[in-house]
């Protein structure tokens, strides 16, 4: 087990290295001048060469790319520092500390919602294939797969305002500071993300369970005279859930990416909103480090899912 974990972590190193290079290069080749973000796109025309040179020197942008990259990675590896916001000088660790918990809550809650909705729907569909219930469930799963989360989020926000004159909080409040306000921040994005995932979960649960319910051991259980509930809970579901768990791990990764747009729609103060703001500002340091953080989380979550998979199914030997 430990060897497996060590191997996986070692494999993660080149992946993270690749991510750092990719995001570093992308931020520099994308159109948009950081001086434009700094002074205004129209105003940089007025700057003299001396003025531009001083600002670029202050920001460290006059150094060769390789030096800039080395400085970033060196800060992380040698000093354990993510550095500071390119422009304002805010410590990036502070941004992560205030934003990441909210995004994590949104991600976890969305997975819970997806299970709460997706599993029952999948089970009912699998037990009653081709029934009206199954058809209705299929229709809704296709619908939620097709609806863009960002659009659904906007719709929810508009609905809240129109019907109740309510808008969820837009500044960060942590769960330990005020759980109720924190809940109001995360519930909207979590529902939207959760509904999207629930559609995948329902379809996966249906097909998986549909297959398992026709296996010999289930037939044997029924032949022994076990009730349908017991057959489902004791025999069918544990095996049918394995692919669903794997899918959830993958989906959690997608949630990280999807939350960027959803947080924007709700103006929820998570990591996604910070990433978008930094990208607009051309704040290279913030974008690079948040992206790197996303990559680390994605790798860790997938490792966790793999370990969970082995724990749930003893037939799988991780080594």
């Amino acid at each position: 087990m430990y060897t497996y974990i060590a191997k996986r972590l070692l494999y993660a190193i080149p992946a993270l290295f690749g991510v750092t290079i990719l995001i570093f290069v992308i931020m520099r080749v994308l159109p948009g001048d950081p001086l434009g973000a700094y002074f205004g796109v129209e105003e940089i025309k007025r700057l003299t060469d001396a003025q531009k040179a001083e600002v670029l020197n202050d920001l460290g942008l006059d150094r060769p790319y390789i030096v800039q990259y080395g400085s970033w990675i060196g800060d992380i590896l040698l000093r354990g520092s993510l550095g500071e916001s390119f422009f304002r000088g805010d410590p990036i660790i502070r941004i992560l500390a205030s934003r990441a918990p909210i995004s994590a809550e949104i991600g976890i809650l969305s997975v819970l919602i997806s299970w709460l909705i997706g599993l029952p729907v999948g089970i009912i569909s699998a037990f009653r294939p081709q029934s009206k219930m199954d058809s209705t469930a299929s229709m809704f799963t296709v619908l939620f797969l097709a609806i863009p989360g960002f659009w659904l989020g906007m719709l929810l926000v508009v609905g809240q305002i129109t019907l109740f004159g309510y808008k969820s909080p837009i500044t960060a409040v942590q769960i330990w500071q005020n759980p109720w306000i924190n809940f109001q921040i995360i519930i909207g994005p979590a529902i939207v993300l959760g509904l999207g995932q629930a559609a995948y979960i329902a379809r996966m649960a249906r097909s998986s369970l549909f297959e398992v319910l026709r296996d010999d051991y289930v037939r044997t259980a029924r032949a022994k005279g076990l009730g349908e509930k017991l057959v489902l809970v004791r025999h069918a579901l544990p095996n049918a859930l394995l692919p669903v768990i794997t899918l959830s791990g993958v989906l959690l990764g997608f949630v990280l990416g999807g939350s960027v747009a959803i947080e924007q729609a709700f103006a929820a103060p998570g990591l996604g909103k910070a990433l978008v703001a930094a990208a607009i500002d051309r704040d290279f340091n913030v974008v690079q480090n948040i992206t790197l953080f996303y990559a680390v989380v994605f790798i860790v979550v997938n490792l966790f899912v793999d370990l969970l998979y082995g724990w749930l199914d003893p037939r799988i030997r991780l080594s």
Binding site: V157, V158, G165, K167, I170, A265, A267
Partner: peptide, 21 residues
């Protein structure tokens, strides 16, 4: 005074005002 950051011309800006934020 709290100056809450919002982006110009966006629905979020309008929503924050109408929704009491």
């Amino acid at each position: 005074i709290e100056h809450v950051w919002l982006v110009a011309w966006t629905p979020q800006n309008t929503a924050a005002l109408l929704g009491g934020q």
